Amino acid sequence: MFRHLARTALTLVVLGSAVACGSGGDGSDGYTLRIGATSPTGTPAGSLGWGDKEGILARELKEAGVDKIEYSFFQSGSDVASALIAGAVDVAAIGDNPGLRTRSKNPEVVLLSLDSINGDAWLVGAKGGPTDIEGLVGKSVTAPQGTIRDRAAKQLIDAAGLTGKIQVRDVPTPESIAGLSSGQIDATVVTGASAIELEHKGFPIIDSLGRHGMGSTGTNIALTPFLDQHPGFADAWRTAVTAVNRDIRDNFDEYAQWVAQTDGTELEFVKESTRPDEFNTEPFPAEGVDQLQAAYDFLDADGSLENSFDVREWAGAKS
């Protein structure tokens, strides 16, 4: 997926990896597209990386006048969103939590597309600790505040009817995993192959969003002034995202192998944590919009949104 946890402590700005999309410096009227995302490797990861590697993004966005693509990588989705609002990037490819929060602050934030749906998150416990969520009563769960993992922790606690009985602490994922290993942390929420890797190392999977029919989405957002300046861009972006995802579904084994290599993990962990149906081939599939609405409802009830807005209109008006 376009959004990934950054394991580095500093923001990585990768300008040297600009990808030529046009005929080069020939004085054309094309422009450089600046994409902001998070990445564990400092290079385009997930479906964004696959689209970059296979040349799909360059090909599809060329029709909208994009001559080059520059990537900036940040520590969190919230950081990417802040860069978008500040004008440092043109498109933010982030999780639904920061996407929804950003739209609640600024009505000029446009939802270009969903780049993934059905995203899972796992509640992983310490070795020798509780193996069910009831065993965490009076204890704490860690997750970076404002992220999908944070919301997942709260959703799983809520689904168990234990709201207020289990604390959710704001701790970055690398520190959480280290604390889990040392026994200093009771449980944390992890996404992707990292969760399956921990399970194979003997850490118990206590619960997951998927067990409750819940899931997360990836949002791609831009600002109205940018889209007004480039009127053909939104349609080209949606075509590009769905073309990338279609290619991943058609070549899933090759994609999984590439993810395992770039993320430095085992192929079996990638395949256990990632399913082809996470890669939507429509920009706003009904299932994904339902998941986005569910995320909005939870954040709204939690008091995490500054202003209310119509999620289905935000997505549906663009479909």
Rank of each mutant, 00 (worst) to 15 (best):
M1Y: 11
F2W: 09
F2A: 15
R3N: 14
H4A: 09
T8N: 12
A9E: 14
V13C: 08
V14D: 11
S17C: 07
G22W: 05
G22R: 07
G24M: 04
D26F: 05
D29Q: 12
Y31D: 04
R34Y: 07
I35C: 04
I35T: 06
I35D: 05
G36Q: 01
G42I: 13
T43G: 05
P44R: 05
G46E: 02
S47V: 11
L48R: 10
G51R: 10
G51L: 13
G51C: 09
K53M: 13
A58C: 15
A58F: 00
A58E: 06
K62V: 06
E63H: 08
G65I: 06
D67G: 06
E70K: 10
S72D: 08
F74P: 01
Q75A: 09
S76G: 02
S78R: 02
S78H: 04
D79Y: 03
L84Q: 11
I85L: 14
I85M: 03
A86V: 06
A88W: 05
V91D: 04
V91P: 04
V91M: 05
V91C: 02
G95W: 02
S104T: 10
N106H: 14
N106K: 11
E108N: 15
V109I: 15
L112E: 00
D115G: 14
D115R: 00
N118F: 11
G119P: 12
A126C: 08
K127V: 15
G129V: 03
G129L: 03
G129T: 12
G129P: 08
I133K: 01
E134F: 13
G135H: 02
V137L: 03
V137Q: 13
G138A: 07
V141A: 06
V141N: 04
A143V: 09
Q145A: 14
G146Q: 03
T147G: 06
R149P: 00
D150L: 01
R151N: 12
A153Q: 09
K154P: 01
D158N: 14
A159R: 14
K165Q: 15
V171R: 12
V171K: 01
P174T: 05
L180G: 04
A187H: 00
V189H: 03
A193E: 12
A195I: 07
E199C: 00
E199N: 12
H200K: 15
H200V: 08
G202E: 08
G202K: 03
P204T: 04
D207N: 09
D207I: 13
G215P: 07
T219V: 13
A222D: 09
L223T: 13
P225H: 05
L227I: 09
Q229K: 15
Q229M: 08
G232Q: 09
A236F: 01
A236Y: 00
R238W: 06
R238F: 03
A243P: 01
I248H: 04
I248R: 03
D253H: 13
Y255G: 03
W258N: 13
V259C: 01
T262N: 10
G264M: 11
E266I: 05
E268P: 00
S273A: 15
R275L: 14
E278T: 07
T281C: 03
T281G: 00
T281R: 03
P285E: 05
G288K: 04
V289T: 12
Q293V: 15
Y296A: 02
D297P: 02
D300H: 11
D302N: 10
S304L: 14
S308M: 01
F309Q: 06
V311S: 02
R312K: 15
A315V: 05
A317P: 00
